[in-house]
Design a binder for these strands. Sequence first.
DNA 1: CGAATCTGAAGATACGCATTATCAGAAGGA
DNA 2: TCCTTCTGATAATGCGTATCTTCAGATTCG
Lengths: 347, 347
Amino acid sequence: MAPKPRRVTQREIAELAGVSQTTVSVVLNDRDGGGVRIPEATRARVKKAIEQLTYVADPAARRLAGLDNQIIGVFTYEAALSPESMDFYGPLLNGIERAAEKIGWDLLFFTSSPVENGTRSLFHRKTRLRLTDGCVLLGQQMVASELERLVAEQFPFVAIGRRDETAAAVPYVAIDYVTPTTALIDQAAAAGHQQALYVHRGRDTPAARDRRGAVEAASAEGRLAFLLVGEERIGDLPRLAQATGATVIIAEDAFLIEDVVHALTAAGVAVPDEISVAALGEVRGHRIDGKPLAGFHVPREQLAAEALDLLQLLIATEPDEWSTLELRRHLDSDVEPGATIVVRTEA
Amino acid sequence: MAPKPRRVTQREIAELAGVSQTTVSVVLNDRDGGGVRIPEATRARVKKAIEQLTYVADPAARRLAGLDNQIIGVFTYEAALSPESMDFYGPLLNGIERAAEKIGWDLLFFTSSPVENGTRSLFHRKTRLRLTDGCVLLGQQMVASELERLVAEQFPFVAIGRRDETAAAVPYVAIDYVTPTTALIDQAAAAGHQQALYVHRGRDTPAARDRRGAVEAASAEGRLAFLLVGEERIGDLPRLAQATGATVIIAEDAFLIEDVVHALTAAGVAVPDEISVAALGEVRGHRIDGKPLAGFHVPREQLAAEALDLLQLLIATEPDEWSTLELRRHLDSDVEPGATIVVRTEA
DNA sequence: CGAATCTGAAGATACGCATTATCAGAAGGA
DNA sequence: TCCTTCTGATAATGCGTATCTTCAGATTCG
């Protein structure tokens, strides 16, 4: 259906310059040697013709001829540009854009991917995936079968977020949550806290399991005793804190902490004076009672940059040799001590 | 350089099914009639082979063969995904994504476009523009020559923002600022104000000229007298208000008003009690002394949706008939009366 | 029963570009 | 002079798909 206006081709340039299409191609790509030689005089003549006709290469033809396209795909399992997603995707997309700009890549967003049982799917009859040289995958919920197919087809891609649960070797760049979670727990313990509550969303993602694992480890090792609480029981928190004697509440992310604080203050509990709080996620911009919330600073821009760097490496490397590469990269979050974990003087 | 893993082609399917590549193509596209007939039996056999080999069409080849790609380009003259641009681009991109998702289009962001004297340029030797079926242009500063070239090449595109200054007929979707500006000025006049200051950024864009024009018209017609002030003289505003007897300050956008208010309060002037303020732009989320700022609600998501709708129309129409189309669409901003234009009781 | 028509499909070609192989003519060597 | 080497370029080919044309064999018509 698309109207196809005539555009300048190499053949037209060739006619204007009185040479063959081959010669034009060679001049355009500055190719020399390898059985082909074009003297400076001819070269100049062709270049002049190119300028005159404002030639622009057809990317589809280039692609079909086996060259790279300088396009990378961005696949998100949910809408990426909606205000709600911006919290999460914003810094990532920003990092991707900056990195792509630097190395001259365009970004293809697979917004068209049809939604099947809740998430978008990458493979469909008309997927434009192969127009790209490689692909970045974002999102909480990735479909394992699609990751495996990408690996099987030896398609260069990088997932953002830990993906070590699938059988296949999925290249990814992820935040390490174990280290900072442990650090934050130790901070609370050092402040004199002994009993805590952990509020989580009950999701089963690698990142969620990491955090939970670090929490349970701390509990098991006696550094800080935890009771795990699902988000649906936030209203019940004041009572639970009372019952367990918990003096600090840690939640999976900062938004959850907002809800927690709301529930506590509604019940007449002072935060953070009576009960300390912290989040195991990005806390930039979150303040509790005017005080900066304790938690992490997640380097999301850097995460994105790292992902594109890895992707670039994959694209430049023959698939056979991928196994020799370091396909998994981990970044540490900085711990933000904040001011919402108060020192507990022994009663 | 891109590694090119082998992929399933129509030829392979053909071999498996014992038919020709032509037949496979016909079955894939459900083409029938027009000199080509495939009986149901053969059709089924081919379809089975397609399923078995998990065929996915190569978009580059499709494109080269003259079909549409279901990709539209998104070109911004500055970085689109940075936190600073999000204020402006965010709602637009969101609208574009939603509209694209609805009609099954992918989005190609031209992040690679090289920066030449301050802005990105759309046409360069390797532009991937032609991979798309059409293109949306965003940004304050567009290059007239590029717009004209797009028109000349009969490439389907739509600009967001008014672009009627160029000679060529540029299709665009824009906000009408004249009507709401006039409305806001009349609101101030009705509240008893007689003398005003207009703070602007001194930019020469169509939208800026529209606003300025409406301001000057109001002044000329005696509805409200204005003194125009460049943003560099914001520090001087308290004195200017004193000197002119102005009781209301209108600025080009809400961020400018923030600066204005800052200067005024620093000089001991109460806002809005002593001097009213309003912005000729989006005011969502902007509050002055706890009161909602008077100004506009710019329907940016809708603007984007309208742009894609127009683009779709262009793509579906033969370029020869574009001249019969309504290529320019205008949307009204809603006026937000706010609470920062106070009624002035005659002294 | 020969000619016209219909059926089902394959062959050839185009799209624009890169690349490989080829080739005519000039220059150099014996 | 004849053979080799070098120079400067061209023709041919392939990439994967869609489409236009052709065609053999079966069927129907007169």
